[in-house]
């Protein structure tokens, strides 16, 4: 049994398949039940972006579930990208939440490994990782095919547009390349990348990646200040902000404005060759609108 909805593609999928340059952005769920600010940000971005990612206890910090936030976005008329990590749930919980997201109306899903609990606010928690990100992608494809992981036929399948993450600036890149290809083999159709700063290197990655039948959205992380850039370099694995950008920020009168200009420049560059951009503004969602207006 396949529901009618399963035949309906998400806007994100339709736009990407039509060859249009899409912009997605990330909205961070609140740390509690007050969704007022979250909704305000969603309304701000509505119509400006194709879809909004809702993060799943990002950096292992406990927040409102990405499932609930995806439902809130749908109510606001904003298409969600439902993010799911492997850190907090075993395969039963993952599958039932993924089915739940489909029933609530989510059509895009992004499968991630998840940051380790040792980074977060519940450091005594048990890290689950019953599945890894490749297996999670495969699990979603299995649910799409109308079965669950133990082979039992579902009463109503999902039809998700399956996404995953890749780090084009990973060092070394060899193991990351293998994992990227495994995610594709497991069923990933689109990728949102880790923050990119070296555009020449990213172009080379894109040339390689686009030999596969997948859509790539380059990750743009808004630099709010030179301090933040240095912090990223020190603390966030796989992200390297080059010195010339740090200099550009520190010499600016308004560092946030300079960061917005840098991000807009990067999105413009991506527009020249890539399938889309994914903007991560971490709490500065209003800046996303300004970035888009400058592109």
């Amino acid at each position: 049994m396949r529901s009618y909805d399963a035949l309906q593609k998400s806007d994100l999928q339709k736009q990407l398949e039509a060859g249009r340059f899409v912009i997605t952005a990330e909205i961070c769920p609140p740390r509690g039940t007050d969704t007022a600010v979250f909704i305000e940000k969603a309304r701000l971005l509505k119509g400006k972006i194709t879809a909004a990612n809702v993060t799943d206890n990002q950096r292992a910090v406990m927040r409102l579930s990405s499932l609930a936030c995806a439902a809130v976005l749908l109510k606001e008329g904003v298409e969600p990208v439902f993010q799911v990590t492997c850190r907090d749930r075993n395969r039963l919980a993952l599958q039932s939440d993924i089915l739940g997201a489909w029933v609530l109306g989510a059509r895009n899903i992004l499968a991630l490994t998840g940051d380790h609990v040792s980074f977060g606010d519940h450091r005594d928690a048990k890290a689950v990782f019953d599945l890894d990100s490749v297996q999670l992608v495969g699990t979603i494809r299995t649910l799409n095919s109308g079965k669950n992981l133990s082979g039992v036929e579902l009463r109503g399948a999902t039809g998700f547009f399956i996404g995953a993450v890749v780090a084009p600036e990973a060092n070394p890149f060899g193991p990351e390349e293998l994992k990227f290809e495994k995610k594709i083999a497991a069923g990933a159709r689109f990728f949102q990348t880790q923050a990119i700063y070296d555009m020449e290197r990213f172009k080379r990655f894109f040339d390689y990646a686009s030999r596969h039948d997948v859509k790539i959205l380059g990750g743009i992380l808004l630099l709010k200040s030179a301090n933040m850039a240095s912090f990223l370099n020190k603390n966030v694995p796989g992200v390297h902000v080059p010195q010339n950008l740090i200099d550009e920020l520190s010499s600016a009168k308004d560092q946030l404005q300079a960061g917005i200009e840098i991000a807009a420049r990067q999105v413009r560059e991506l527009k020249g060759f890539c399938h889309g951009a994914h903007i991560m503004a971490i709490g500065q969602e209003e800046s996303v609108v300004r970035i888009i207006e400058m592109v």
Binding site: T113, F129, S133, V165, P175, G238
Partner: peptide, 19 residues
């Protein structure tokens, strides 16, 4: 630390573990 079975997570930095 995550017991992954299909390759590294995105946390590798210069070949080192994020944890």
């Amino acid at each position: 630390p995550k017991g992954l079975l299909n390759g590294p997570c995105g946390g590798v930095a210069d070949g080192m573990c994020e944890v």
